[in-house]
Design a protein around this nucleic acid. Structure first.
Lengths: 200, 200, 200, 200
DNA sequence: CATGAATGAGGTTTCATTCAT
DNA sequence: GATGAATGAAACCTCATTCAT
């Protein structure tokens, strides 16, 4: 007899296949048949595990965001100087992406769907907001410790997010340059820009 | 029969209708039928003026990028301090986008939905590269004038591009915050980070 | 829902519907919608079983050619006089065509509408060549047995093919006359023309 | 001022362009736009000279058939032996085709349309019948002169037509071999098959 | 006579989803 | 749990034809 397959494993196979497909061709250009072919499973199985294409994408997104942001919490709560912690964040993110080179495209795709899709939008914002809160607290700490000048912490936090997403996006679409170098360079510049000057 | 319309005007009607549609629903979710309905023209007319959906989008993209980047040249070649010119760039871009609220989504579409498309990618890169060259020259001038510390001009230029695209993207997808404020705030932070310190 | 039908049977239904449609209107004038209507199936089903219209036609063609040429091998390898075998071939072909009155138009379609198509041409040639080889061997045997005068076997074989296809074509397009009579009459004339004369 | 173009010349240009297009791609795959491009004229001009695509094709067909069959009358009414005249017919046809290598495909295309198009059918049959009558008379003369055995003249005439069309068709679709050789070889074989034997 | 933009019905194909087995 | 054939709406695109200039 064929060994009865483990459902959790099947789910895994689907997610991995979907990850490869979405990374290769994006959300719209990936068909369920593509994922069927990539996974070696059947169409019915896909629909048994995931309600529809969107739900499959959403599940994948959750897991990917988890992997990318897993190290952040630890870094943020260390007691190194804030500027040092920010730089380490850049390094951590770039390493997470480098470790999964092909999956990295998915968040960009996600934004695509997000934009004008209520369900997605709520989902993504929730995720982003927790990250924003942590970063705001980090910057605030920097100010209180006297590392940074006073500033609009909320504004700069969103600016940093946008900077990171922009750099990651450029990386995904194959623009030239090294991801880690660019993340660190730009983080350092912004950190330097925030730093308290002796004469100020 | 109806009096013969001016072909150039027809082309315009199509582009405007397409702009509204793409801004509303994105590239993939907009069908040629949507544009037909929005324009009030016939499908044959659309295909008479544009080879296919992709070509229509590309034509639209070109024109939009032109509008957004039209003011940059003038700003870049002024003789104000480089840091001042950079800040004005941010202002100019945000105003161009604000002036055409509904069209602005199109470039984001381009990046998000179409980066898998070789033809599109080449097209966009060509456009970006000219901007990169100008910016590199600007930063170089800043260093030579003693405004900025020495740095890897190429790297920072791409980082600035990514920063701008990230901020614009966040704006397009409706994340909270004011576009101009954010562009200026972040530009200033980076400029401050590049600035030559008295004691360095 | 309807009880699950047998896929092989579905394929059969499609082929039969296509056969009727192509016979009625030819390849180009038959739309996939025509075949959908004729088969009572859905468009998706057609495309599940056949990659595209061309592939459907090709599959149909293969089967029809198979039916028409099935009896040839047996006839060719009998030990009757070669001239007798050639005449029997004509009879067999005309009977195969008469047995499937409505399908017969498809090969004509093939030749007339699709000879510009590389893929089709290759396909047809492969089929024809095996037939050509057999016929060449047959004529050669006729010469060696002293039934026929020496001749350019290759040239005459292709001439016979063309004769048959011409006659079948005229039959398909409804020109007057009886298929079998004409095939046999012309075969006999050519055979007579090849025959060794006592005084030569 | 531009010299006013001669309408007859324009008509000629259209027919020549159409000939090239139809020969290249067949009737259905040739679009009016193809002919517009090939001719360098405008769509309106095509429709001013010809009512529609079909009428254009028909006009072209007439002229081509005229060119191919122009020499037949003279040959048929010579007083050479009938067998010799038949052979000359084959030569004449092959030379007419060789002289216009690219137009030759059109008659085959014509048959395609003919098949199931009443208007075309009438047209083609009228042309063919005049040829059939001449050929029947020729064969009859051959019998009366004692060159040929008695036979069903009508049947053999249609058989010869089919033979010629088959050979021409094979030539058009690019099957191997030389057109003239094949026409002559097969004509001779059939003539030989009709010839009165000394001992019969 | 000539032009070419405009038309719209109709073509082929794709694809997310369902459901009997 | 798993399968894969079946569905049909909807996508993109073609093209013969018209007609105001």
């Amino acid at each position: 007899m064929a060994p009865r397959p483990d459902p959790a494993e099947t789910r895994e196979l689907i997610l991995e296949a979907a990850r490869r497909c979405f990374a290769r061709k994006g959300y719209y250009r990936t068909s369920m048949d593509d994922i069927v072919a990539e996974s070696g499973l059947s169409k019915g199985t896909l629909y048994w595990h995931f309600e529809n294409k969107r739900a499959l994408f959403l599940a994948l997104f959750d897991r990917l965001m988890g992997e990318v942001f897993a190290p952040t919490e630890e870094i943020m709560s260390s007691d190194a100087p804030v500027s040092e912690r920010l730089r380490r964040l850049g390094v951590a993110v770039s390493e997470a992406i480098a470790a999964h080179p092909e999956f990295a495209a998915v968040p960009a795709n996600f934004l695509l769907e997000l934009w004008q899709d209520e369900e997605f939008a709520r989902h993504y914002l929730a995720m982003l907001e927790s990250l924003v809160e942590q970063t705001e607290a980090l910057l605030q700490e920097g100010i209180e410790r006297g590392e940074f000048r006073p500033m609009d912490v909320h504004e700069v936090t969103w600016g940093l997010m946008a900077l990171y997403d922009g750099i990651i996006l450029y990386h995904m679409i194959g623009l030239p340059g090294d991801l880690k170098t660019r993340l660190v360079t730009m983080t350092d510049l912004v950190v330097e820009g925030m730093r308290k000057r002796d004469n100020s």
